[in-house]
Design a protein around this nucleic acid. Structure first.
Lengths: 205, 205, 205, 205
DNA sequence: TATGAATGAGATTTCATTCAT
DNA sequence: CATGAATGAAATCTCATTCAT
């Protein structure tokens, strides 16, 4: 918005590198600023503090991520249980979106999901899991009710949310190329959906 | 080796608490030593350094863990592919052993698997996954060969090792009671085995 | 001088608050400017520096204070020693004037007298005491001369000046209401005057 | 208690100087440590922190001061109102004790009473005043009850406690020699006691 | 067998101030 | 008339580590 945000951008760029390399906690403001050719004071002028700098690095991608999660969950909650047989395509669609999002901000997502210990975002994966878990709960309930003598296996439901999130993080850390990632996530998601249907219920009592 | 290990043991006990609470990186040697009624110098006499203290805390359980892993993998490598239909019991047996081991040294395992960032053990889960991955490779190869036009999906194979390890860590962090843990891990392992068989292969080319 | 002093005034107003709250030394220019909707640079344009800002806040009341002090001292120096018996009314008059002045610029006076550590005004009370001390000196001399074998107790003279100033500061910090303050200061001044007459002299040699 | 506390003592000595010169808030740990030929870390080993260092500097004299205050107040509370005519000697005794105490730890007392802004002791004078105020309350009550139509002038009572404390601080800052101080405090205390008796009461209603 | 003392390098943060625009 | 950007110096504190004794 000002004539030149060069310093701000340089700082963000250098912070990104440092966070990625050392993680938030061990990242050194001094290092970042030296790299950017500035003094640490500049961080406190341009951002609030170390956390503020991190926020500047990840906030936009984070917003998009949360947006996608919310719309996925909303869809999930309005989906018909009977339709579960062909939801696969749906899931594929979500997975595609997610992969594209993750890889279009690769560094930021890595920081957010893997390198944010010690920051305000250190529990983001857990929060996302919680969102999913809650979102899937209704569908699971309907699904369980549909079969007498069965009830939701709460632990399995949660674990499925956990490994779904985990699947994307694992992908991110093991495959740098987006096209390949799009291929690789397919069977994973496929397996997840099929297993979900099969293992989400347990015998009542 | 017996006269007077009191200090050593007190130190180990206090370190365990601190590591569990704050994680290795943020644990304070001074704190630990003060708690043990000693000074930091004692750590450098009795152990080598901070990492050495951690090692003393976790080495025995770690040894047992590696032992169990190795024997599991060895078994896996000698197993017959044809037998895969009823390997379920086998896996249950392994899972039981693993859960019992993990829960008989709960604190140490938590430290090792969840609180060791910054230490020499920070990649232990990855190493275990690697072991598993390698161990499952031969069986997977045989299994793939048995079906023409199919080959191993390397990524899926690795991911299965990943979530298998993850399953135990997730259990550890979400269920403190061993009996309940033994119940909860069952469907997880069941799902894992069944899915393994189904998803480990992909179309050739 | 009139078109647009808004910024200047806003700055002064906000500075007043901050100085009052935290004292000069711990007051933060950034805070003040942010509160005023300006940046720190503005302070250096509109005033000279932090001290200049303080000066702008207190200069008018300070001028009046010094004026009153000077006229009080001038009167004191021209007063007749013989008249000391009924000077009481005089002192009451001065005290009233002083209280009215102090309370008509309560905030500024508080800053000046209690919150100016670290600024150019940090010794104002001492300077005022010095003025008083010098002013009372002549009267005291005449008074001492009037009684053979007596001389001025220099220390007591100074201490009286000290507690006279102190009396007003104490009042300011312990009574926010002007009417009540006017009542409370009466016996204090009364005591001061009477004791002055009695204790200002000591035996010669 | 150890072989040599040289560093500790050097640190305390240098801190004393720095605190005296700049006051607690503006005193620089770096400076103090450099002066003592140590690093700042040493402070955090030998004391807890900056406040801890100050505490080490002043704690002994502070203890004695509080002790003396307490015994003075206890005496005051058990004193007979009828005896007030010849209490003067009593007060002289207290004043002598106080002056001796203050001057036998001159630097520490200066720090405590004049240079402790920003530390845990910054309100010590106020606390002492409060103690005195409370202590004198009972005597004042009896004294007021003894004359119908009179009641305690709460403000004057407090102000007397205030200037009594102030008298000692003023002395400390204006007279470095103990013998001279002992002389100078006499008429001050004398005046205080006489005025107390005269001004502590006001007309009822 | 351990202590006590101290280091040295680092951390984040705060601040008044400057100055080109 | 004031901003926005940035400096540079200083602040307190924390820590793992060392080593003579």
């Amino acid at each position: 918005m000002s004539v030149d945000n060069k310093s701000r951008e340089r700082l963000i760029e250098c912070a990104k590198k440092e966070f990625l390399e050392k993680g938030f906690a061990k990242a050194s403001l001094r290092n970042i600023c030296a790299q950017a050719g500035l003094t640490t004071g500049a961080v406190y002028f341009l951002f609030k503090d170390k956390n503020g700098l991190l926020e500047a690095v990840v906030s936009a991608p984070l917003g998009e991520l949360m947006q996608l999660m919310r719309s996925h969950i909303a869809e999930e909650e309005h989906s018909d249980i009977a339709a579960y047989s062909h939801v696969a395509g749906d899931h594929d669609y979500f997975a595609d979106e997610m992969v594209k999002l993750l890889y279009s901000h690769y560094d930021e997502m890595m920081i957010l999901l893997e390198k944010s210990q010690g920051s305000q975002f250190e529990n983001l994966p857990d929060k996302v899991i919680e969102m999913l878990d809650n979102g899937y709960m209704r569908a699971a309930q309907l699904y369980a009710d549909a079969m007498p003598g069965k009830r939701i296996n709460r632990y399995m439901l949660h674990w499925f949310s956990h490994i779904q999130v985990d699947a994307f993080i694992h992908l991110l850390t093991h495959e740098r190329d987006m096209q390949k990632a799009l291929e690789k996530i397919k069977p994973v998601l496929d397996m997840l959906v099929k297993s979900w249907v099969e293992y989400i219920r347990e015998d009542d009592k």
